[in-house]
């Protein structure tokens, strides 16, 4: 047998071979079903808003707010992490994952106080999403303003 300890490269290749892979097919199936289900709930709320006479943009906002509210509630009840363990990207990629990533550090850092703990650490996971999302939108707006 070759000695895996020869160089970091051979060791890393050897470790990759030794380490079990995630069950990607079943993970994808679960992500598909749960992700699809969450979007469908959103769609139902959307139809309901429309039937009450809201316009498309307002309906979309209501969908976001309700899904975020549900995700925050489930996170607080210690249920979201159980869903997330099964669903993986299925609950992460929808707006529910964004809500969970804000609520979970808020709860975790409560022990460091309501101002610097909850308030300060709330965006440790989700902060980058807003930084990149909003910055990119400003760039898109500027490009549109100057070149289109």
């Amino acid at each position: 047998m070759d000695n895996p300890m020869d160089t970091p490269k051979t060791y890393s290749d050897y470790v990759d071979k030794k380490s079990p892979n995630s069950p990607i097919f079943t993970n994808c199936l679960k992500a598909f079903l749960i992700g699809g289900f969450i979007c469908s709930i959103g769609q139902l709320i959307f139809f309901f808003c429309k039937s009450k006479g809201l316009d498309t943009s307002a309906s979309n906002t209501v969908v976001s707010i309700i899904l975020i509210g549900i995700a925050a509630l489930l996170t607080g009840l210690n249920i979201f992490n159980k869903i997330g363990k099964v669903a993986g990207a299925g609950s992460l990629v929808p707006i529910t994952g964004f809500a969970n990533s804000i609520v979970s550090p808020a709860i975790e850092y409560k022990s460091e106080g309501y101002i610097m703990g909850v308030g300060g650490k709330m965006f440790t996971v989700a902060g980058p999403v807003l930084v990149f999302g909003i910055s990119a939108s400003v760039i898109v707006g500027m490009i549109y303003c100057f070149f289109v």
Binding site: S19, S22, G84, N100, S104, I107
Partner: peptide, 17 residues
């Protein structure tokens, strides 16, 4: 977990390793 990884309530998956 709090110090080295993620908040406990975060709905992430733990890899098999």
């Amino acid at each position: 977990e709090k110090q080295f990884r993620f908040p406990l309530e975060l709905g992430n998956q733990r890899p098999p390793t």
